[in-house]
Design a protein around this nucleic acid. Sequence first.
DNA 1: CTTACAACGTA
DNA 2: CGTACGTTGTAAGC
Length: 894
Amino acid sequence: MPDADKPTLLVIDGHSLAFRAFYALPVDSFTTRDGQHTNAIHGFLSMLLLLLANENPTHLAVAFDMSRASFRTREYPEYKGTRGETPVEFKGQVPLLQEALQAMGITTLEKEDFEADDILATLAARGRADGYRVLLVSGDRDTIQLVNDDVTLLYPNTQGVSQLKRYDPAAVVERYGIRPEQYPDVAALVGESSDNLIGISKVGEKTAVKWLGLYGDLEGILAHADEIKGVVGQNLRDQRENAERNRRLNRLVTDVELDVQLDSLAAKPIVIDEVRPLFERLEFRTLLERLAKLVDAPAAGAAGAASAEVEAPAVSAPQAPASQALTGDVLAEWLERAVVAEPAGLGLSLDVLEGVVIGAGIATSDESVRLSWRADDEAVAPFARWLASASPKIMTDAKGQLKAIARSGLEVDGLVLDTLVAGWLLRPNLTERSLADLVDVHLGEKLPQADPSLLVPEEGSDAGAPEYAWYTLRLAPVVLRALPESTRTLLADVEMPLVPVLAAMELRGVTVDHGELGALSAELGDRAAALAAAAYAEIGREVNLGSPKQLQEVLFDQLAMPKTRATKTGYTTDASALVDLQESNPHPFLGYLLEHRDATKLRQIVESLDKAIAADGRIHTSYGQIGAATGRMSSNDPNLQNIPTRTEDGRRIRKAFRHGTEYVELLTADYSQIEMRIMAHLSGDPGLIEAFNEGEDLHRFVGARVFGVDPVDVTPLMRTKVKAMSYGLAYGLSAFGLSKQLRIDRAEATQLMKEYFERFGAVRDYLRGVVEQARIDGYTETIFGRRRPFPDLTSPNRVHRENAERAALNSPIQGSAADIMKIAMTTVEAELASRGMASRMLLTVHDELIFEVAEGESETLETVVRDRMASAADLLVPLDVSVGRGRDWEHAAH
DNA sequence: CTTACAACGTA
DNA sequence: CGTACGTTGTAAGC
């Protein structure tokens, strides 16, 4: 029977999907007036409606776990043992969800002693036998084993539940490199942390798949365990019982006794009036409307508006339109028509070769155009005009293309959206860093790629600029719709205007003196050699001082020193441990080693900077706008955000950073104590706010409060302690950490924290509240609406959870500082341009900006920079900016 | 040749 | 047992 004629059985793992929805949707947007949480129910039903519309199932059931206990926990009590208590906010939603399903006439199933997945397995087997096409929806990877020609798995991606990835056998092979029935063998070898199943040490997905290729299945692998060499082979022999147990536990049961027949699962028409009372009680207005639409037009809705959210099957994924090569008047006419057809913007992608534009692709939703570019070519002049106009453009990873445009002598305006930046705002932790990733995650499609095994790519087999432009355009509404309102504002007002600013800064670069670096490098090299020789003399042999492994032999075997803190591969030899050792077991080798580390580290930085000096005598770093999950920018190739400043030798590196010949000096401007100010603002702590408004030395003021003395009587030691405490707060510092840093005992550190929080109680309340709120929402948010998800806050693993708690604590603070700096950069750049000033912004180092000052502009520049930076945000405390000027970066410091 | 890790520079 | 990054060299597996 052709597939299309088969009845379709849809079976959903209710718990798994509702749980995903629970964490995907903010609970505070889904709470009824009387306080009932509904996010899990809403998310689940929303997904269900999409499935009904898109898949047209003829038969339908939702399976639930009856309890956590099952035959698996009887065999292995630790099964799923790492899972924490189910949040009560979730638990309460399950009965309501079941009630809603019942009202919709959908069968719910559960079976004592089995998990929902076993019910899925059983129905899949029965459905297949009876000639059904089966669709399973589950967030449990174990269900991959059920996939076959008749059974397809829809798996929610990390995004939530509104987007489902479709696994048929081919998709499983593509994703995992194995056939579906092999998946449990892989999982058995690798282990599954969420089920608390430990696998074979050192065996990851790659190794497991390789073994399967060699020996067929787990049984074969274990039979040939003796042939596998190396540590992993030994681990396999030692731990084979883990794999065998895992395999027993992850085999889903396909013959659970269920007291339903498939016939009885036939989809019944939904009666709106049956559903209405409950939906109204749950305040599901839009869901009710959607449901009503679905009931009115059951089949026609299949390819309707909702299709963007649930993926269409791979075979019917839309294809990029064939591109047309246009020039001259025809191009002009096409552009005129296209900008009207796509008022939100056209997709645009540039072909860049050796830094300059050599072609372009422009797309509407159903057409695309390609151009080969020659800057002097009249034939593409209409494109250049459109590019320079404010007509809206949508790009992916625009920064590099903007640089190429500038280098090619072209102008660009109207960049309204960079889908890469938008995608990052949506999922700042994750690593979709290319158009292909975005297409995969947000459209559920594959960006066509040339087959890498072909030496000469097939004509048209991979995507060029017109295809990139077309995919970019299609991504735009998907990512924009997914962004919360506040984040959308952040994107439009902060991130997008920053893109061209960063491009300009990268193009400008900064002058660095090659001779100065060369001299410094030689000197550091000599010093390192001498220190190495002295170190070798102390231990009577030469070792590689850069090898932690060899150092461990020297320290703990040869010199018999006490073991330090453990690392994954032994015992640490880091600087703080060496200093501790020097105190307990003084030895000249330690001193030489530490100094050698300093010298080689510094030389390495000098060398890499020197190598990065371009033909124009300047270093052009790249900024990663989507670098950090907190919102900060990163710098790479080379990293100019970690140039030493704390030691004299380090500062010599900064002296090599100069102004260019057309300029008279460098100016640096930094926000003083911006993170503490943000903490004062967010916590509203009256003491801290007063401290900043007083305008006197912050740490002195705080020290006076904490130690109960007059500000003038705060000793340097007291100030140091309080300063460390204040800064540590924003990082989730513990009493243990504080005592270690200040080298004071635990009791004193605890006392210090206690005193601090007694005087600045609102700070403590705020920090505590951040984590609590994040646990509820699943994310933190900065002052300007930047969100960062924290799924691990509910992790049953204490280490993971506490790490997440500290990161969550820090995120709104570090992230708000990043927001403010980004706003400041955009406004400063705009102000300099509007005043027609020649001075220009070169670098940013998180809370510092560095400018090149043109003749006669020193005073004006300082005023503009101070003013724009200080007014970038309106907080409860002033933003203080300190400025310095000088011939080089070091002299310009203050 | 690629990948993981330890170590360390900055804010 | 303090957050966020990027870079480097070594070691180990390929």
